[in-house]
C-alpha cells in the first residue's frame, strides 16, 4: 500500500514538473496555452484583424509588433497581450498612459479605440494574440461587448 502511494505521489510530482517546464514564456498564465489548443482561430478572423491592425495600431507598434524602444511597447510575448482578456480589451477601449509594461516604462500614450466595433476589437486582439510569435485564445465579439458594458467609467 505504502509503495503504491509513493508511486502515485511520484507521478503527480513528475507531471507537475513537466507542466511547469511547458510554461513558455514563464510570465504567461498556463491557462492561455492549454486553452489555445481548444479554440481554432479562423483565417477570416486573422485577415480581418490584420486589416484593423494595419489601420489603427501599426504606426506605433510597428509591422512586426516589436514596438519602438522606450516609446511604444512590443506586442509579442507581453503579459498584457497574452494574459487576462478583460485587461487587454480595456487597453483598447480606454487607451493606456503611464503604465509600466513588464518592467519597462514607455514615453508615449496609447489612445482609446472605443470607436471600433466589438467585432473589430475582437478581431484585432485575436490577430495580435496569434501573430508576432504569440499563441493564445481568440477574443470573441461577445466578450468585448460584455467588457465594454461593464467598462462604463
Amino acid at each position: 500500500m505504502k509503495q503504491i502511494l509513493f508511486v502515485v505521489y511520484a507521478l503527480a510530482w513528475f507531471s507537475q514538473l513537466a507542466a511547469a517546464q511547458q510554461k513558455t514564456p514563464p510570465k504567461v498564465k498556463p491557462t492561455t496555452k492549454t486553452a489555445a489548443k481548444l479554440v481554432a482561430v479562423s483565417a477570416a478572423t486573422l485577415t480581418a484583424g490584420k486589416a484593423v491592425y494595419t489601420q489603427n495600431c501599426l504606426t506605433c507598434h510597428m509591422a512586426d509588433g516589436g514596438g519602438v524602444e522606450r516609446m511604444n511597447p512590443p506586442l509579442n510575448g507581453t503579459t498584457w497581450v497574452l494574459g487576462d482578456k478583460t485587461r487587454l480589451v480595456k487597453v483598447v477601449l480606454n487607451g493606456l498612459e503611464g503604465e509600466d509594461i513588464d518592467g519597462e516604462s514607455y514615453a508615449s500614450v496609447m489612445p482609446a479605440f472605443d470607436a471600433l466595433t466589438d467585432k473589430q476589437i475582437a478581431d484585432v486582439l485575436t490577430y495580435v494574440r496569434n501573430s508576432f510569435g504569440n499563441k493564445a485564445t481568440a477574443v470573441a465579439p461577445a466578450e468585448v461587448k460584455a467588457i465594454r458594458a461593464a467598462n462604463k467609467k
Binding site: E97, S108, V109, M110, P111
Partner: peptide
C-alpha cells in the same frame, strides 16, 4: 502631448 489635442493622439 503630440499636438495638444483634447485627447492626445486620438483620431
Amino acid at each position: 502631448s503630440n499636438s495638444c489635442q483634447v485627447k492626445d493622439r486620438q483620431k
